[in-house]
Nucleic acid binder design. Structure first.
Length: 515
RNA sequence: GCUCCCAUCGUCUAGUGGCCUAGGACGCUGGCCUCUCACGCCGGUAACAGGGGUUCGAAUCCCCUUGGGAGCGCCA
């Protein structure tokens, strides 16, 4: 094995001449998303997944999913499934991973225990790793004193030079021990980060670190790096919180003679206040977004532009998003989550979705234990979508319109009521009389009404609109959002949607309420 | 505490020494369209964190300050 000093792909150092040639570039690109199922995915996590997916797609490579459930994680099954659902929902289908398998399985770290054994013993037998008997308590104290003395809270190397007989004896006594990776002193680790450029780390800043816990389970640094290598991952795109972890993983991989992936560390997503994403600052989980009625492509279009930029500002499908994705177009500063921009992409997504799909979408969720479809008469589904699609951003909005337009009877809101009262019952009496001709088009009807009532403009249309589209559903205003009578689609479109019978009924309803 | 990363309109960003009187998108806002809201179209608002250098010339390069983020764990 060459020295620990490592250079990426420059040939400018003597060290690099000793290195095994980097073969990654000849392999097809393989990216991965390796979440730890300790909770629901949030925007930041899923953005990392998206970028990895996009990069794989772009290069016609492979996107791999691996569950990092090294710990005995409570409820990880539940979260793992939730994650898979989130990824599928967004369309980030993985080519290898849980549920679908692949050549490098299993894809849950908890099931990979036996695979790590040989790597541990390889390291141990060559003296590159050593058992450490320090107790957690002992380490905590040492960390504290180091911190108090103004030194980094690094492992002191206490068990570094334990003699073999010593180690034997302590094992014989049954003392628990972790396995620590021995970090060479006085070396530097260099690599080229695909978004941050050349990186240089001194090994002196890195303490010997635990690669196997005293209970025998592998630690994150270890299995994460090993798995990437043996699963053939060529490009690791992950949050910048892992940037300073990277040299440790590079050292490990080099010590084991495993292939190194390329690394790209992306800036984290922060909340509107600039603080890390958290539920407290209003950051939503992917699940909440989905349940809130956001369309998957709205989320992708937003996320792909959060800390990343495209030349075109047009709405794109996943394919196009992938084609034009570019690591060098990634910002290096943390990006803030801004819901108004997500909402913008939601509106764009709606524009790019067919009536059929929107109908399914607006019925995908029960609102107040009811569905949009419970209001809209059979056969009028698509027409309904067509009429209201420009006026909605959520399934709730569609639900309100369905109620407004098709509910058994109207309860007018204040504006509607006043428009109706202002017109007077005589207006609606005449409106009903004019309506006798059921072959009338909206235009000819309005013409006639205009002559009969001697009204025009607002005083003619507003009462009609009020009578036909009524008011907001009272129950909806309880769900947190307050809906006002928000006018809505062209009257002509509403007219055609409602049909003769309903229009008649609405007009007489209006007439009765004026008294 | 130490090490590292980052810093352009309110937000996402373009910008890699002259093309910058700093461009685009979202938001906000004025107008047009119009029976209303939305859509659409046309306009407006608004930024190089601060201070020093380097240079004929700096948003762009260097240093310091400030502010934000991360790492230093038997967490991942």
């Amino acid at each position: 094995m060459a020295g620990l000093s490592y250079r990426w792909d420059y040939a400018e150092s003597a060290d690099s001449a000793n290195m095994a040639p980097c073969t990654m570039t000849s392999r097809p690109i393989k990216t991965r998303f390796a979440p730890s199922p300790t909770g629901l995915l949030h925007l930041g996590n899923i953005r990392t997944a998206l970028f990895n997916f996009l990069l794989a797609r772009q290069a016609q490579g492979l996107f791999l999913l691996r569950l990092e459930d090294t710990d005995a994680m409570r409820g990880h099954e539940k979260y793992a499934r939730a994650m898979e659902l989130d990824l599928r929902w967004l369309g980030l289908d993985w080519d290898e991973g849980p549920e679908i398998g692949g050549r490098h399985g299993p894809y849950a770290q908890s099931e990979r225990g036996p695979l790590y054994k040989e790597y541990f013993s390889s390291l141990e037998s060559r003296g590159l790793a050593y058992p450490c008997f320090c107790s957690e308590h002992e380490l905590a104290i040492s960390r504290k004193t180091a911190l108090a003395a103004g030194r980094p809270p690094r492992y002191t190397g206490k068990c570094r030079a334990l003699s073999a007989p010593d180690v034997q004896a302590r094992f014989a006594r049954g003392e628990p021990a972790t396995l620590r990776f021995r970090v060479d002193e006085g070396k530097t680790i260099e690599f080229e980060d695909k978004v941050r450029g050349p990186q240089i780390f001194r090994t002196d800043d890195i303490g010997d670190y635990v690669i196997r816990r005293s209970d025998g389970t592998p630690a994150f640094f270890f299995c994460n790096a090993i798995d990437d290598a043996i699963m053939g991952v060529t490009l690791v795109v992950r949050g910048e919180d892992h940037l300073t972890n990277t040299p440790r993983q590079i050292m490990l991989l080099q010590a084991l003679g495993l292939p190194l992936p390329e690394y790209a560390h992306i800036a984290l997503v922060v909340g509107a206040d600039g603080a890390p994403l958290s539920k407290r600052t209003g950051s939503k989980s992917v699940q909440e977004l989905r349940e809130g009625g956001f369309l998957p492509l709205a989320v992708s279009n937003y996320l792909a532009r959060l800390g990343h930029t495209y030349d075109a500002s047009a709405f794109m499908d996943l394919e196009t998003l992938a084609e034009n994705f570019n690591l060098s177009r990634l910002g290096r500063a943390p990006a803030r989550y801004d819901e108004s921009q997500l909402v913008y992409w939601q509106k764009e997504a709606i524009k790019h979705t067919s009536n059929e799909e929107l109908w399914v979408w607006m019925n995908s969720k029960a609102i107040l234990s009811s569905y949009v479809s419970s209001f809209v008469p059979k056969g009028k589904e698509l027409l309904f979508v067509k009429v209201i699609r420009d006026n909605i951003t959520t399934p709730e909005d569609a639900f309100i319109w369905a109620g407004n337009l098709f509910a058994e009877s109207h309860k007018y809101d204040r504006d509607a009521k006043s428009a109706i009262d202002k017109a007077g019952s005589d207006f609606f009496k005449k409106a009903l009389e004019c309506f006798n001709n059921d072959t009338a088009t909206f235009h000819s009807y309005v013409k006639m009404l205009e002559i009969v009532t001697n009204k025009k403009g607002k005083s003619l249309y507003m009462p009609l609109r009020a009578a036909l589209s009524g008011e907001v559903n009272e129950l909806i205003s309880q769900s947190g959002r307050v809906y006002e009578w928000n006018h809505g689609p062209q009257l002509e479109a509403i007219w055609e949607l409602l049909g003769v019978d309903l229009i008649k009924r609405r007009l007489s309803e209006a007439k009765t309420t004026t008294k």
